[in-house]
Write a protein that binds this DNA or RNA. Structure first.
Length: 334
DNA sequence: TTAGGGTTAG
């Protein structure tokens, strides 16, 4: 990118398109701050310049800055808002839970008679699902003239997220009927559905089918779903075997799921062992200490609880208070 | 020169 910068500096006939291309290049190399500098320096910005910058922020998971820029273009310019910009702005809305902004984009699209392409439609159904309005997601899905793997995967994951496990499975079966081939992410959604619904047999079947029928090798996310599902179902020994046979280094979330399962099902001996591993993997994560302390508490082993508390203090791990109503009141903000 | 989908605790 340095070379691109030098060439750009020497190039005398710089137009908006050159500036925008360079910004896009910086964004795709995750050099967002440099991209933003150039964006701010640009003498004239096109609608594509704005969208490239917003897209860049969203793709690099800087949703707050994406939203800020989106609001700027919306309120302080008379620029046309193009589809790419709106799709990315919608993604930012989904992540930030900015419901009103997302609704505004919807009305903008309707009043400007934009067609629902697969990208826009998929972004919309995802937005509504993340806001908990799964019926609106389904409405968007039904209105879409074309759908593809990503649309179906988004719908399956959305149903799973909102607790409609059986409908998610039904959607998966319909997807197969419409001759679309599921991919790795489709299965993350499907296994998440099985997990949320406690559907152990279905989960096991789809996990196996994924490998044997669809030739997709499981990622840590797929294992994460299975570990959580089997742990909650009390199959803790089986889970430990699964974790140890994984071709990845298990992370704290994986061990944490098993620890929680042990706690719920009273598998105390395993809880203690897993709890120790969890603290080694994530020594700064306050929730892991709570998990182990809870397992000790269930056993009535209060010396264990006290030991975990002491370790937390010694290592300087702070408890993070949840942002619930009780805590808000405690802070004097009713 | 620009766009969409991913599970997880007390």
């Amino acid at each position: 990118m340095d070379l691109a910068d030098k060439v750009f500096a020497k190039y005398s006939n710089r137009n908006t398109m050159c500036w925008t291309s360079l910004i896009s290049g910086y964004c795709s190399h995750a050099l967002l701050d440099r991209a933003r500098e150039l964006f701010d320096e640009m003498p004239e910005k096109s609608d594509v310049s704005w969208s490239v910058m917003v897209v860049g922020y969203v793709q690099n998971e800087r949703h707050g800055e994406a939203m800020e820029l989106f609001l700027k273009v919306k309120f302080f310019t008379s620029m046309n808002l193009n589809r790419s910009l709106l799709v990315s702005a919608l993604r930012a809305c989904s992540t930030l839970g900015a419901f009103e902004e997302g609704r505004w984009i919807h009305s903008y699209i309707d009043s400007n008679q934009f067609e629902y392409g697969v990208e826009l439609g998929t972004a919309f159904l995802d937005f509504y699902a993340k806001c908990g309005l799964i019926l609106l997601s389904k409405e968007v899905f039904d209105k879409m003239p074309n759908t593809d793997v990503m649309t179906w995967s988004a719908m399956i994951a959305s149903l799973a997220l909102n607790g409609y496990s059986h409908s998610a499975i039904q959607f998966f079966l319909n997807m197969l009927r419409s001759k679309l081939k599921p991919n790795s992410i489709t299965f993350v959604g499907l296994l998440a559905a099985c997990n949320h619904g406690g559907l152990v047999d279905e989960g096991m079947t789809y996990f196996k089918d994924m490998v044997t029928v669809y030739k997709i090798s499981p990622s840590i996310e797929h294992y994460g779903c299975m570990v959580d599902l089997l742990s909650q179902a009390g199959q803790t020994k089986k889970v430990e075997e699964m974790i140890l046979s994984m071709p990845f280094e298990p992370d704290g979330a994986i061990w944490g799921s098993l620890l929680h399962g042990c706690f719920v099902h009273g598998d105390i001996e395993l809880a203690e062992r897993v709890g120790r591993v969890v603290l080694e993997v994530e020594p700064d994560h306050c929730g892991r200490y709570v998990g182990l302390a809870n397992a000790y508490a269930v056993m009535g082993r209060w010396e264990g609880v006290a030991k975990v508390r002491r370790e937390m203090e010694e290592r300087g791990v702070a408890m993070i208070a949840g942002w619930n109503y009780t805590n808000i009141c405690r802070l004097g903000m009713p």
